[in-house]
């Protein structure tokens, strides 16, 4: 089903996941992830057309809550967690682009 994982694939995935890898790490992860994917290839030989995918172990439906207020957290406690805060808000370094 899949060609063996390439170094570029790992680099791309690391970027998507916001991780930076050294060259040596790229080599190591390419090999290790390739092994897992190779193992996963035992699924690829199966003809599973018509098999329903399962995302949840049990089929529950319509679990909802009433539109009623619950107590929010105290702001001081919330901002005490923040690595950086200013004016009642979480502070971050500049954002390079608009949200997608």
């Amino acid at each position: 089903m899949s060609s063996p994982l390439r170094r570029d694939d790992v680099a791309h995935v690391a970027k998507l996941a916001r991780l930076s890898l050294s060259s040596a790490e790229l080599d190591m992860f390419t090999e290790q992830l390739g092994q897992v994917l190779e193992h996963a290839n035992d699924m690829s030989s199966l003809d599973l057309d018509g098999v329903k995918p399962t995302a949840h172990p049990f089929e529950l439906v319509n679990v909802v809550r009433k539109d009623e207020i619950r107590v929010s957290l105290d702001r001081d406690e919330v901002l005490a967690m923040a690595p950086d805060a200013q004016d009642g808000r979480f502070a971050v370094p500049r954002i390079m682009g608009e949200a997608p």
Binding site: M1, S2, L37, A40, M43, S44, L46, L48, V51, K52, P53, T54, A55
Partner: peptide, 12 residues
């Protein structure tokens, strides 16, 4: 190939 197939294996 991977996630979709694994969800089906979960059904199996």
């Amino acid at each position: 190939a991977y996630y979709g197939q694994a969800l089906k294996v979960r059904t199996l």
